[in-house]
């Protein structure tokens, strides 16, 4: 494990609420590190509806999911937040007293942080792979069925079956084909969402007899002791055939699951974190919750509410980070000190 990173605040999640919180914290000289399981910033806006229009962001009659993320990133640029992507915050440990809180935060990529406050901006939970509802698939998970490829060596000289038609499915088809004993790509139709160049590379391998493409869907799995032996595949015409398989890698997109947030000793109300509406602090002093993940009377799951919550939470975070200082309220329009931080004065 590497050395622990010391910072003022760790933000769990990098959705819109988290991004704007960086701005509000930055104005108060508070440094933040953000962790997200996704490979990029933006949460639901980036993952679920990047190209769809949003009509209720104040001051933007219309902006797309990707558009608002891009603008937020530009807005927080002066504060140089550090992003840690493709990793999940798994542990949150309280190191100190309620008066002077301090926390240790760990991710599943072995990264450790020590900080004064934690802002949970986990939205609808962390994005996790969807599991195909094939009877008994759980028994094979992590032995024969993998929703992500972590160790390529586990696939060497095996009968590998990849399922799906998007970029993840095609990328892993191309990466695993050279080391697999035999690789089969199973997709429900002979059309692919993935980037055209990877689709072409796949089709070339199929023509060269180096891999197989099966159009159909997996009906059932068989094997013993968690080790997969075969999969039943139903073709588009309804014919069922069997395929030998030792490693199955299904790609059915992502869904949001609360995940480790439930294990941090925070009060929960139907998978949401109750907070006070003055500071958006949880039952644990020093841990805040903003955006879709929190709950209070009148809560609306709107981006603009997450922005407001971040601004108020930042005020209280300031007291934990700078206990000896007094916070003076200032406008960005007229305060030279704020403008210096923004790099415009």
């Amino acid at each position: 494990m590497g050395e622990s990173i010391k910072t003022d605040v760790v933000i769990v999640g990098a959705g819109p609420a988290a991004l704007f919180a960086v701005f509000e914290l930055g104005l108060l000289d508070i440094k933040a590190h953000l962790v997200d399981v996704l490979p990029r910033a933006g949460g639901q806006c980036a993952e679920l509806y990047p190209e769809k229009p949003i009509y209720d962001i104040p001051g933007h009659p219309m902006i797309t999911g990707d558009g608002i993320v891009e603008k937020l990133l530009a807005q927080i640029e002066p504060f140089h937040p550090t992003f840690h992507f493709e990793q999940m915050v798994t542990e949150l440990e309280v190191l100190s007293t309620p008066e002077a809180p301090a926390f240790r935060v760990k991710t599943d990529a072995e990264r450790t942080f020590e900080c004064r406050s934690v802002i949970v901006a986990a939205g609808g939970g962390s994005f996790q792979p969807k599991k195909p509802p094939i009877e008994g698939i759980e028994a094979y998970e992590q032995k024969s069925v993998f929703y992500a490829v972590r160790k390529m060596e586990d696939f060497r000289d095996k009968n590998v079956v990849v399922v799906g038609g998007g970029d993840s499915a095609l990328d892993w088809t191309l990466n695993l084909q050279p080391i697999a004993k035999r690789l089969t790509l199973v997709h429900r139709r002979d059309e692919f969402r993935a980037a055209p160049h990877s689709v072409k590379a796949m089709r070339d391998l199929v023509s060269a007899g180096k891999m197989e493409l099966r159009i159909g869907q997996i009906l059932a799995l068989s094997g013993a002791d968690g080790r997969l032996a075969a999969a039943q595949i139903k073709s588009a015409k309804g014919e069922v055939s069997e395929l030998a398989v030792e490693r199955l890698v299904p790609f059915f997109g992502l869904t949001m699951k609360l995940g480790p947030v439930a294990e941090w000793g925070l009060n929960l109300h139907e998978n949401l974190i109750p907070v006070d509406t003055a500071r958006f602090e949880t039952n644990v002093p020093g841990i805040f919750a903003i955006g879709d993940i929190n709950h209070y009377p009148g809560k609306l799951k709107l981006i603009l509410c997450g922005f407001h919550e971040g601004a108020l939470a930042a005020q209280k975070v300031y007291h934990y980070v700078y206990p000896e200082k007094k916070l003076v309220f200032q406008y960005t329009t007229s305060s030279t000190s704020l403008q210096k931080k923004l790099g415009v004065a």
Partner: peptide, 13 residues
């Protein structure tokens, strides 16, 4: 919609 249907299970014509 076809692209999204790739994420559904047991799809038919």
């Amino acid at each position: 919609e076809e692209d999204m249907l790739d994420f559904a299970y047991g799809t038919q014509a």
